[in-house]
Design a protein around this nucleic acid. Structure first.
Lengths: 332, 332
DNA sequence: CTGTTAGCGCATTCAT
DNA sequence: ATGAATGCGCTAACAG
């Protein structure tokens, strides 16, 4: 690979002239620029990032600590958004993937992160959760994307789960549904509480008397393989007539299970019972038949805003709630 | 961030002693090592990657050009495997995500890749396909993961789709299925041909006479939203009795559409008709009810082998077929 | 407008 | 066993 020096030699000029041709072309006379440019193209010269970066770390590199991306790959969009955003502003980014439960891995990840001397670090997570920040990272400028922490005072960009569920529920009320069955995600999830509040706030506003007792239920944790179990039990008791007209699923995976369960028992969606989800999983949710009404987790926006936090030099601290847009389908 | 120099000053030794403490501790006396180590810990010193990399590029850094990851995020595993593998061997990697259809982006991606002066480049893709290699990258050592190319002579690590579909089909024959309905992925996909061959080879081996004419069909491209249309048409004509006992889906997304279609028409899986898929999409496939029998795309292994290609200094060229393991569920 | 000097953080080489 | 000198590719600061 060619270096500045080689380009300079080929062009018969000094190092600095080539450097300027690359970074401040306006400081060169038109003809020397043209001359140097020719040499650059001829040698296929590309600046050496490491060499640039070594000098006083210009502060245009962002390190990304990506946690648990493997288990739910729907959050790649966060990473993609970061990369695209920094690129647009002439910054750089690099990603370290790891898993939070492995403490040793976390330590190593922190070291690798620091070895790039980033101006700041974005900690991103596949699903909203509280994260522990490695000790070594606590002195570096940091911002959180799709996670929160108690270890340091930082800004975080997280989904507005309350608003998302609220908007969805308002739609349901407007459409005239009266008897909801809610299968929330596990209680310990941060999003669970917000969404539950969002639902109840929107629902009680209009329909406080009509809430059936069983409207509130909890799905099972982690893999969600048993996410529709509550529904299954209800169907066992009364397999013909449903005691609810709308099933509010804690996420699209629960909705996925719910669809199969309902369809296999001969219920039509939405004629016999409507279904809504949450997440809008890229690559999957658009395959629901009928198309699923759901709420989109703003992965892209969370990544973008986290990146802009550094690029624009924002100094804020605390939670920034990102709107979750409604995705309207045929399932309600 | 502390530098070698600062550590040296704190420890009252020269730069080199600190450098050796990090890279060749055995060359130091036990007591100076201990002394220096203390200073290193005290300052939370982490070596500067750029500074290391600047010197003659030791050749332990791999650049990854990841194509189209956003559209089907199931391939994160490739990236993860690469990162994990290089790390285990003391190498480094960095990833540039881009989209092949944007030619300008590809050029820029190539430049950014080169700016890190990698010892080699892995080109990875979300789905198996032929890729164009940017001109600037054609002189760098390269290996392909889940893609192939005609532009350069390189090694590629791709799924053995023939073997995968062959093994699956053998299982079906063994189980006694007689009348298959195949809904392949679009013909222009490389995998389509291999899988079709795999199916036919395994099926004709045993059951050549009994192949019904309609066993061969093609799904629709890209989003797969219409992937089960052929089945839908068949059901319109004859909605009561099925003329097939096993539906072979080109991938798990088609299988999901098929599930919904069958269940909504009152057919039971696998009692009335069995279903099998292909891909084993991480985070999704395990939610099928009943659990889906499918074939796993070896994303992790493709990434790992591509990384090892450089790490072990393999010199081979051409296609390396990675086994696709059978995932046996309750759907057949 | 262009060139020279110096130094970023580190490891290779050679000395002690 | 430890240190000093040198240079990797590049740019900020100064000189001309």
């Amino acid at each position: 690979m060619a270096s500045l020096k080689q380009v300079a030699e080929l062009a018969g000029v000094s190092l600095m002239t080539v450097s300027r041709a690359l970074n401040n072309p306006e400081k060169l006379s038109a003809k020397t620029y043209k001359h140097v440019k020719k040499a650059i193209d001829e040698l296929n010269y590309v600046p050496n990032f490491s060499a640039k970066n070594i000098r006083g770390s210009t502060g245009k590199t962002i390190g990304v600590l990506s946690l648990g991306t493997a288990t739910t790959p729907f959050s790649v969009e966060i990473i993609l958004a970061i990369e695209k955003t920094v690129r647009q502003h002439g910054w750089h980014s690099f990603v370290i993937n790891t898993f939070e439960d492995d403490k040793q891995e976390m330590e190593q990840a922190a070291e690798r992160l620091l070895s790039y001397r980033p101006a700041g670090i974005i900690v991103a997570r596949n699903g909203l959760k509280e994260v522990k920040i490695p000790q070594k990272l606590r002195n570096i400028p940091m911002v959180l994307s799709n996670c929160v922490t108690n270890d340091v005072d930082v800004a975080s960009y997280i989904p507005n789960d309350f608003q998302g569920q609220f908007d969805l529920t308002e739609l349901l009320v407007k459409k005239g549904y009266k008897k909801p069955l809610c299968m929330y995600i596990p209680e310990d999830a941060i999003a669970a509480k917000e969404r539950k509040n969002g639902f109840e706030k929107a629902w009680f506003n209009q329909l406080s008397p009509q809430i059936p007792e069983q409207h509130f239920m909890i799905g099972t944790p982690h893999t969600y393989e048993n996410g529709a179990k509550p529904l299954e039990k209800l169907l066992e008791n009364n397999s013909k007539k449903l005691d609810f007209d709308i099933i509010v699923c804690g996420n699209d995976r629960i909705a996925f299970l719910t669809y199969q369960l309902l369809l296999s028992r001969g219920f039509r969606i939405p004629e016999d019972v409507a279904v809504v989800g949450y997440d809008n999983m890229v690559g999957v949710t658009h395959l629901f038949q009928p198309s699923l009404t759901t709420v989109q987790l703003p992965h892209y926006e969370m990544g973008k805003q986290a990146a802009l936090h550094f690029i624009e030099g924002r100094n804020s601290i605390g939670e920034n709630l990102i709107t979750c847009p409604l995705i309207i389908g045929q399932s309600c």
